[in-house]
Design a binder for these strands. Sequence first.
DNA 1: GCGGTTTGCCTAAAGCTATTAGGCAGATGC
DNA 2: GCATCTGCCTAATAGCTTTAGGCAAACCGC
Lengths: 189, 189
Amino acid sequence: MARAGLTPERLTRAGAELADEVGFEQVTVSELARRFDVKVASLYSHLRNSQELKTRITLLALEELADRAADALAGRAGKDALIALANVYRDYAREHPGRYAAAQFRLSPKDAAGSAGVRHAQMTRALLRGYDLTEPDQTHAVRLLGSVFHGYVSLEMGGGFSHSAPDTQETWTRILDALDALLHNWPAP
Amino acid sequence: MARAGLTPERLTRAGAELADEVGFEQVTVSELARRFDVKVASLYSHLRNSQELKTRITLLALEELADRAADALAGRAGKDALIALANVYRDYAREHPGRYAAAQFRLSPKDAAGSAGVRHAQMTRALLRGYDLTEPDQTHAVRLLGSVFHGYVSLEMGGGFSHSAPDTQETWTRILDALDALLHNWPAP
DNA sequence: GCGGTTTGCCTAAAGCTATTAGGCAGATGC
DNA sequence: GCATCTGCCTAATAGCTTTAGGCAAACCGC
């Protein structure tokens, strides 16, 4: 029997591509086996179970997102940086909807701790150094930005805005303007 | 054979309870049948398929949420109304995590048009009458509020904030303060 | 209250996914 | 060149989804 050269890494990458094509929820060990022209059981030498496959795809997506974010933030500050970071999430979700969905997958505390999720928080915090916020307000702002980015992108992807009128690009720009203004005028408690 | 008295409505309600217990993703026609002490195939006289079950649970959740929102907004305006509406979403998600997840389920355009989703947008728009925004800015603000509410609640539920320090109630309050301030000072294009 | 019809739940069966156990052959190491 | 190891295989179990066809309880008109 010719060997297919399976590895956890190749399976994860193929799984991520599959997710982008059919949706993260539809990623299945069986379909993956079909793509490698291999029997399902063979994958179980490389993956503990389908949960592990999903976890690996999630970790991959978080890494890719963090890498893109780091790239986008390099050499930028203030509103420039804000816009760049926001667009990283939005663009990634558009280019890789399945991976983006994977990035929202709930990880075990252990996996989460070792994930690139930490880098994301750090980068958002770094971005906020361009604004004048006290330490606790920085945390609130990190959470606000995370909420807006994630909330907007997932509503837009989910078609939540597709019924109403003005195009979403205009809204996106204006929301980022508004956030920039807000961070400059953050209200005292 | 004693009849179990199944109806689409009872199945939907039971499905919603099941979702809150085990998660929306884990809602299964088989488990529902078990709960009614009935064979799986019997449910197919009342539901076209498992997709329809999920759609019905989604529609139920959207209605419940809209009813709560309407209640909360009655007699309130301005920041008061903003806080009340925001808390409707957050509290609903805490009390009914499965139903809240269902409310995010992607509906067909046809189902979406007939859903309470429309009411949600209208209520957010009504709330914004307490602030002085031009017509197009109202739409942008509706989308911003939707993004923040949904984004915050889903990150909080997903444990996205559970690692960092200050408690989430404080952040939630401060974010609502910030949104109120922003709506009062919405930047011109 | 009785016969006929409708309706509700049942059995049976096929197809898909996940997962485990055990086997054989190609790759690897001395 | 031989022994070992590793990778993919076959086989089997179990759960979920969905369809087809059957029997009996409930309902309807008289």
